[in-house]
Amino acid sequence: MFAAGIDIGSTASKAVILDGDGQVKAKATVPIGTGTAGPERVFGQVMELAGIARDDVAWITATGYGRFSFEGINDQKSELSCHAKGISHLLPGTRTIIDIGGQDIKVMRIGDKGQLLNFVMNDKCAAGTGRFLDTMAKVLDVEVSALSGLSFQADEPAEISSTCTVFAESEVISKLAAKIRLENIAAGIHKSVARRVASLVQRVGIQPDVAMSGGVALNSGLVRSLEEEVRCHIRVHEDCQLAGALGAALFALHSMRNCESYTG
């Protein structure tokens, strides 16, 4: 039997399937999130990749903002617990996790077994979130995935001082009008996000190792900015975007085993 974790975020859906030994059987990502066909699609994809049917999945744990809206799950867990679990599996030794989600920034302090010890989240403001990056990429008329490469070509990062998304947008527009290079603006955007996130990191206190979770961690330009702001190396796993789904799958595996020991 298999255990599945599905992470339904605000901008993407992710799923992971584990076999009974806890080995990753399949993983999938779909770039649309809660309220769309994304969750169903990613779950269909991941089963297809694993070559299994829904009946083969003994336990499904959901996480992410859309965790209550997915039919047929066995239980759901908060994304904080799932990222903590997932990252500590991918990158053992991690004590501080930074996750920049679509609408939330989370900073978590975790113990040696991946248990959550303390956490802070941003207030209700899009500053510094994935949504902020999306908006800025749109203004620059580039894909959000292109921001990273651009920022590495910067020679003089632009100063984006506003934290408010609307104001920052107009600041970026005026930089464009002033013919400031796209590369420098991209680097400036990263710096602005990094400052905001670093402020939350300070609240929890940095304890190495520090790792980044979530899809935004794939933006290595931003990770570099963040490293400069928190003055510390940040580890990123290639499957960082799947950390939440993996954590959920690990919880599912645990529940599946408990359940088996009861019934078997």
Partner: peptide, 9 residues
Amino acid sequence: DPTIFNEAQ
């Protein structure tokens, strides 16, 4: 706090 002010506005 310079993060609030916006020149364009």
